[in-house]
Simulated scan of single mutants.
Amino acid sequence: MRSGRTDVISLIIPDLKNAYFAELADAVMTAASKRGKVVIIEQSGGSRTRELEILHGPRMRMVDGVLYSVLGLSQEDAGLIEIPTPMVLLGERIFHGPTDHVTMQNIEASQAATDHLLQRGRTKLLAFGAHRNEVIGSAGLRLEGYRRALQKAGLDYRDELAIDVQSWHRSDGAQAMRHVLESGLEFDGVVAFNDSIALGRCVSCRMLD
């Protein structure tokens, strides 16, 4: 402790049951181990209150740095994430905050996936995993990419094809697809917003075969 370093990193994620975050945790722990570091995993459940408790809790004094996958906080909370411990934000909830930030090209990736299906003659594509009222966040950005691809192809956006899946777990994807199939909604392709709900969709489709 005399060096002022603990060789411990905190990884704050919403939910280890989500395959994406489980894989992220594995990758972080593997990389940290190679450098002689230890990782403490904190699950926030996507709760704003819980995320703030973790960020401003006593354990922050025990770590050298924080990797924080933000979900409960939003752009308006950017000032609340200023802490003495070095931190890197992950995800799409807060932009232009006081820390370094790693994200992915959500709009571009979703647009490319939608383009791929449109080029194969599909015109009634489900936007599977949408959060209609979300602007900043993975779902909102991926829905924007879907919209841009439709516009580029000269097709109108149809709100009924945007399928809400609030939690991106496989069981939620399966349930949402069951509702779609039972409703009789016509579609000829699916742009799934993450792998887990895509697998859930497959389960529901197989059950009806």
Rank of each mutant, 00 (worst) to 15 (best):
N194W: 02
G45L: 12
R201D: 11
R178E: 01
H179P: 00
A130S: 14
S44C: 06
P98I: 01
A176K: 09
A113G: 04
H96C: 00
L126T: 06
K17Y: 13
S167L: 14
V102N: 11
V190C: 10
E42H: 13
A27H: 05
G121Y: 06
G154A: 08
N106V: 01
L181N: 04
M1N: 07
I107L: 10
T114M: 07
G173E: 09
Q75I: 12
R61A: 13
S10A: 15
S33G: 12
E144W: 03
T103M: 09
P58L: 07
V66T: 10
M87K: 08
L161I: 07
A127C: 15
I136V: 15
S110F: 04
A192F: 08
H179I: 06
L155Q: 04
H179Q: 09
A174E: 15
G36Q: 13
L67R: 15
G72L: 07
L80Y: 08
R93F: 02
I81F: 10
Q119S: 09
K17R: 15
L24S: 02
L52F: 03
R5D: 07
D188I: 12
S167P: 07
H179D: 03
S138V: 08
I94W: 04
A109N: 03
C205G: 05
S44W: 06
G46K: 04
A198K: 10
L185G: 08
G129T: 10
L80K: 12
F95N: 07
L80D: 13
Y146I: 06
A31T: 03
L126H: 08
E76G: 02
E92Q: 11
C205Q: 15
L89N: 06
G200N: 00
I197Q: 08
Y20G: 00
G57T: 10
G145W: 02
G97R: 14
L24C: 02
R201V: 09
L89Y: 05
L89M: 14
L24I: 09
V38C: 13
S69V: 15
S47E: 12
V191H: 00
L11C: 12
